[in-house]
């Protein structure tokens, strides 16, 4: 059996199991596990624990890559290829942990404004997420300082717009940026449609959620609209 066929079979089985499991237990689980039964200090605390762990792992990884890269830079005095890779890894980890911490803060704030009890723990949650966000931002800044040491010819300045930075890149780097952006566009196009599909399944088995569906639809149309507007600029006759 071909590897691709085998993987498709596995993916189909897993999807079928998830769908059947959701169909059977979704209503009980959504009301039970998430809110009423299984939490330690306040509703959804397990979710914050997962996000917090992911952010913490990102911060630890980024810090370790950063320390290693700085040590190697001091030792070798030049920029070997592995140092570029370490800088990239440190930047990626710091950016992802910063994203995670931002998501954590936003959800925690929304919950603080929605739930009355237990106020103390909800406030602790918001404070913790804010602290992690500041920590990841500080780390991101450190990574950018290292990036500027590794790539002095295209220094990133904090007051610089992304367009100004883009102009500093050479032709192959611009090509990489275009290619990556197009891949991100294609993936997001698929992901948004898939998310709408998941919301339909959610509506069938759990609860009809109009606002998330409208929001995702608006984002989908907006993304396509921006893409078409940008491509049309290059297809004008004159």
């Amino acid at each position: 059996m071909k590897k691709r066929t085998f993987l498709s079979l596995i993916a189909g089985s897993v999807s079928g199991f998830i769908l059947a499991f959701t169909a059977l237990y979704a209503r009980d689980l959504s009301a039970g596990i998430l809110i009423e039964q299984y939490f330690f200090l306040f509703p959804y605390d397990w979710l914050y624990l997962l996000i917090g762990m992911a952010v913490l792992i990102g911060i630890i990884l980024s810090r370790s890559f950063l320390t290693q890269a700085k040590r190697d830079l001091e030792r070798s005095g030049e920029i070997p290829e592995f140092l570029e890779k370490l800088t990239g890894k440190a930047l990626i980890s710091a950016s992802l942990s910063s994203c995670g911490a931002t998501i954590w803060l936003i959800i925690a704030l929304a919950q603080l404004f929605t739930f009355d009890e237990p106020f103390f723990w909800l406030l602790v949650n918001v404070t913790l997420s804010l602290f992690m966000l500041l920590l990841s931002q500080w780390l991101l800044r450190q990574c950018i300082n290292l990036f500027n040491l590794v790539y002095p010819e295209r220094k990133f300045q904090f007051d610089m717009s992304s367009q100004e930075y883009f102009e500093k890149l050479d032709e192959a780097e611009k090509y990489i940026a275009y290619h990556s952006a197009f891949q991100a566009f294609k993936s997001m196009d698929m992901m948004l449609l898939l998310s709408l599909g998941i919301l339909v399944v959610y509506a069938i088995f759990v609860q009809f959620a109009l606002f998330p569906m409208l929001l995702l639809s608006a984002l989908w149309i907006l993304q396509k609209g921006i893409y078409f507007r940008e491509t049309m600029k290059f297809y004008r006759a004159e």
Binding site: E153, D170, A172, E173, Y175, I176
Partner: peptide
Amino acid sequence: VSRQTISLIERGDYAP
């Protein structure tokens, strides 16, 4: 240009 650009050209991943 950057070192990465040379690397991309050598690997045939980018036509200069």
